[in-house]
Design a protein around this nucleic acid. Structure first.
Lengths: 217, 217
DNA sequence: AGATTTTTAGACAGGCTTGTCCAAATAGTC
DNA sequence: GACTATTTGGACAAGCCTGTCTAAAAATCT
C-alpha cells in the first residue's frame, strides 16, 4: 500500500506536476514579456527546460496554455490577497501605523508582486480578446477582494475608529491611494524599493485618514 | 507666388498629410487592439484606405510606424491635458462643484479618451520593449502635467481654499481618486457613461476635500 | 496637355511559428 | 528485469507576415 512518503508515487506526481508548473511559470513570463501574439512556444519550452512536444502534451495549444496561465495566476494572487487581508488591523492601537503596515503588505504582496504586475498587464493587453476569461476574473478577483476589504473597513468604522459612509468606495479609494505613487515606478517594469513602499504606504494612509478618520465630535 | 489658399499646394499638402494622418490613426487602432507583434501592416493599410506600399513609403518599417504613433498620441493627449488644465477652477465659488466639474473633464478628456486608454495600454504592454521611447514620454507626459496640476493646487491652497502640505502628492492622489472608480469600468474596453463620469468625479472630489479641505480653525 | 511625382495592385522571397508525426530514449511501475 | 507511460529531438507541412520590387494607373504640377 503506497504511503505519502512513498518515493515512487511522490516522484511521479512531483515530476509530472513540477513539469506542469514550470511550463506554466515559463509561459507566464513569456506571455508577460511578449504578449500573446509575440509569445513563442519554443521559448516557453526552453525556459521551462522541457521539449516543445511536452508543452503541447500538457496543454493542447497556445490558447489553452494561455488560459491555464491566467487561471493559475488569478488563483495565486487571490490567495495572496486573502492572506494579506488576514493581517488587516481589526483592533488597531495606532491607526496610522497599523494601516500603513497593512498598506505596505498589500502593495508588496498583491500590487507589486510578479503575479500582480503580470495580471494587470495581461488584462490591459489581452482583455478584449478574451472577454469571458477576464470577466470571470473580474468577479472572482476584484469583486471578492474589494468586498472583503470593504467589510474590514466597515467593522473598523463600526468600532468607532473611522468615519465611513460607503465602505465599498472607501476600499476602492484606499487601494487607489496606495497604488498612486507606485504606478509611476512600475510603469517601466521597475520594482519599488522597500523604502519607496514604506513611504508611499505612509502617504496614502495619511490622506486616507484625513478623509476617513473620526471627525472631532 | 503661392498663397495659403492656393488650391494646388493646399491639396498636395492635405492629401499628403491627410494620408499620413489616416495611416497613423489606423495604425493606432490596430496596435492598440493587437499589440505590436500582433499588428498587421496589411490591416493598417486596409483600415487607412491605402495600399500597403504607401504605408511603407511614409514610414520605413513597422518599428518606425509604431514610434510615429506613440509620438502622435502623446502629443495629442498632452495638448488635451493642458487644454483641460486651463479650465481648472482658480477662483472657485463652490469648491466641491467646481472641482467635480474639473475632475469630470479630466476623466472624460484625458483618462477615458481614446488616446488616453490607448497610451496606457501601449505603455503597459510595450513599455519594456522601448524603454527610451517611453521614458521620454514619462518626462514629457506625466512629469509635466502632474507638475502643472500641482501648481494649480498650490495656488488654491495659498488662496486659502485648501490645506495642502505637498502639492505634488495632492495632485497625484487627485488623479488616482478620479481614476479609481473608472478603472473597473474600462478594464474590459468599455466606456463610462456621462452619468458614471459625474458620479465618480463627485465621489473622488468629496474624499479629496475631506482630506485636503480647509481644517476648521 | 505634357512632365513628374505619388499611389496602387500584385507577385515574390525569406523568415518565423504553430501544430503534427514518429522513432528513439528515458524514467517510473510491478 | 520486463512493461508501460512519458519525454525527447527532429523533421515536416502549412500558414502568415514583413519588406522589396515591378509595371501600370492616378493624381499633381507647370
Amino acid at each position: 500500500m503506497p504511503t505519502l512518503t512513498d518515493p515512487d508515487i511522490a516522484t511521479v506526481a512531483r515530476s509530472h506536476s513540477a513539469k506542469r508548473l514550470s511550463i506554466i511559470d515559463a509561459a507566464a513570463n513569456v506571455f508577460c514579456r511578449e504578449g500573446f501574439s509575440g509569445a513563442n512556444i519554443d521559448l516557453v519550452a526552453m525556459e521551462a527546460g522541457v521539449s516543445r512536444q511536452t508543452v503541447y502534451n500538457h496543454h493542447r495549444d497556445k490558447e489553452n496554455l494561455f488560459a491555464a496561465v491566467v487561471r493559475q495566476v488569478t488563483e495565486r494572487i487571490n490567495a495572496e490577497m486573502f492572506d494579506t487581508l488576514a493581517t488587516f488591523p481589526d483592533k488597531p492601537t495606532d491607526l496610522q501605523a497599523d494601516l500603513a503596515g497593512f498598506a505596505m503588505r498589500l502593495a508588496r504582496n498583491c500590487l507589486c508582486s510578479r503575479e500582480g504586475k503580470f495580471l494587470r498587464k495581461l488584462i490591459q493587453s489581452e482583455g478584449e480578446r478574451y472577454p469571458e476569461l477576464f470577466s470571470a476574473w473580474r468577479e472572482d478577483g476584484p469583486g471578492k477582494t474589494n468586498a472583503a476589504l470593504a467589510a474590514r473597513f466597515a467593522r473598523l468604522a463600526l468600532a468607532g475608529h473611522l468615519d465611513i459612509d460607503d465602505p465599498d468606495v472607501a476600499a476602492r479609494q484606499f487601494v487607489a491611494l496606495v497604488h498612486a505613487d507606485l504606478q509611476i515606478i512600475m510603469v517601466l517594469g521597475g520594482n519599488p524599493t522597500e523604502d519607496e513602499l514604506r513611504r508611499s504606504a505612509a502617504t496614502a494612509v495619511t490622506t486616507f485618514l484625513r478623509a476617513y478618520g473620526r471627525r472631532a465630535a
